[in-house]
Computed example of a mutant assay.
Amino acid sequence: MPFSLHQWLLPLAVLVICGCSENKSAPVTQPAAPAVTQPDTVAVVAPPAPQDTADVQDVAAFLAGLPVKQASELRPLTSSPAWTKFAADAEQNWSKYHSTRTTKIEDWARQELDSVRQNSPVVFYPFSGPDFLNATTMFPGSSTYVLVGLEPVGSVPGRASLVNPKLFHAVKTSLWSVLSFSFFSTNSMAVDLKSMELDGALPLILLFAARTQHQVTDVRYVQLSLKGELQPVDSLANSPKLIPGVEVKLRAAAGQEKSVYYFSADLNDWKLGQSKAAILNYVRTLGPLTTYVKSATYLMHKPYFSQVRNLILEQSRFVLQDDSGIAMKYFNPSDWRFIHYGTYRKPIPMFAKHYQADLTAAYQDSVHRARPLPFGTGYNWRVNDSNLMLATRQNKPVL
Rank of each mutant, 00 (worst) to 15 (best):
261 Y>P: 01
160 A>R: 11
219 V>H: 05
395 N>M: 02
130 P>K: 08
345 R>E: 04
291 T>P: 00
74 L>H: 07
188 S>F: 08
15 L>A: 01
5 L>C: 12
375 F>M: 05
185 S>P: 14
276 K>H: 06
276 K>D: 06
50 P>T: 13
184 F>C: 09
21 S>W: 03
198 L>A: 15
214 H>C: 13
6 H>Q: 13
375 F>H: 05
201 A>R: 07
392 T>K: 05
116 V>H: 02
179 L>D: 10
39 P>A: 11
194 K>M: 09
83 W>V: 03
351 F>Q: 03
235 S>Q: 01
287 G>T: 00
386 S>I: 12
153 V>I: 15
264 S>C: 13
305 F>A: 04
293 V>R: 11
311 L>H: 05
278 A>L: 01
118 Q>C: 13
120 S>P: 08
16 V>H: 12
59 V>M: 03
247 E>H: 02
299 L>Q: 00
19 G>Y: 06
148 V>D: 07
142 S>P: 13
229 E>D: 00
193 L>K: 13
38 Q>P: 10
327 A>S: 14
264 S>Y: 15
135 A>P: 04
89 D>R: 15
310 N>S: 02
185 S>F: 14
84 T>G: 14
108 W>L: 07
333 P>F: 06
180 S>M: 00
63 L>G: 09
101 R>F: 08
126 P>A: 02
393 R>M: 13
145 Y>C: 11
81 P>C: 15
151 E>P: 07
390 L>R: 09
300 M>F: 08
384 N>Q: 02
240 P>R: 15
